[in-house]
């Protein structure tokens, strides 16, 4: 004989309470991680965008997205790598959309031929080098770019980077090496600019 049990309302309330408790726990845990991982998200964005205000906006957005998805993150030990990827993707998107906007603005508002700035040669050379480097970085595959970016940060060893992004140590090392080599290839023709810097 089939036994009918009226258990749904009780189980619904219980599951709702459990969910609420889990949400509160996740919020508390995220708050704890915020102070630690906030600067990391900002630095990733800053090294891509090279702009303080934009980097802060991107870091905020990345942290908010991370918060929204924090409950769904199965392994919380991967939080850092996850946040780095979110921040990196957002920064790249912003950089690309900013460049498109900049191109449009330049086409519409500026005359076609502007005289080169006649200020100090060193500053000009420095700006030129940065422009060349940015272009060279844009041409790099994203996986190379991310590893290069993280390796330039203080406080993170190659082993930590490997653990953070979930890639073997040897792969991280080879990516860093190849990324620097590719950048050097692209910048070699501008060596005279660097010399004057």
């Amino acid at each position: 004989m089939q036994e009918l049990v009226l258990s749904q309302p009780v189980s619904t309330v219980r599951s709702e309470l459990v969910r609420e408790a889990a949400r509160a726990d996740a919020q508390r845990e995220f708050e704890e991680r915020l102070a630690e991982c906030g600067p990391l998200a900002y630095r990733v964005a800053r090294s891509v965008l090279r702009n303080t205000a934009d980097a802060e906006d991107v870091a905020q957005e990345a942290l908010l997205r991370a918060y929204k998805g924090f409950e769904r993150l199965r392994d919380r030990t991967h939080f850092r790598g996850w946040l780095v990827r979110i921040s990196f993707r957002l920064a790249l998107d912003k950089l690309r959309s900013g460049k498109r906007r900049e191109q449009r603005d330049t086409l519409w508002s500026q005359p076609a031929h502007l005289p080169p700035p006649l200020t100090a040669e060193d500053v000009a050379a420095s700006n030129q080098f940065q422009n060349h480097l940015e272009r060279a970085l844009d041409g790099l595959p994203e996986k190379f770019r991310l590893v290069l970016l993280l390796s330039a940060m203080e406080g993170y060893t190659v082993e930590e980077i490997a653990a953070m992004i979930g890639v073997p140590l040897g792969t991280v090392k080879s990516r860093i090496f190849l990324a620097r080599k590719k950048l050097a290839e692209k910048l070699r023709c501008h060596a005279n600019t660097i010399k004057r810097r």
């Binding site: 090294s47 090279r50 330039a152």
Partner: peptide, 12 residues
Amino acid sequence: AIDSDRHAAANA
């Protein structure tokens, strides 16, 4: 030069 530029950008 590449490294110092990357270092400056990444450790702002």
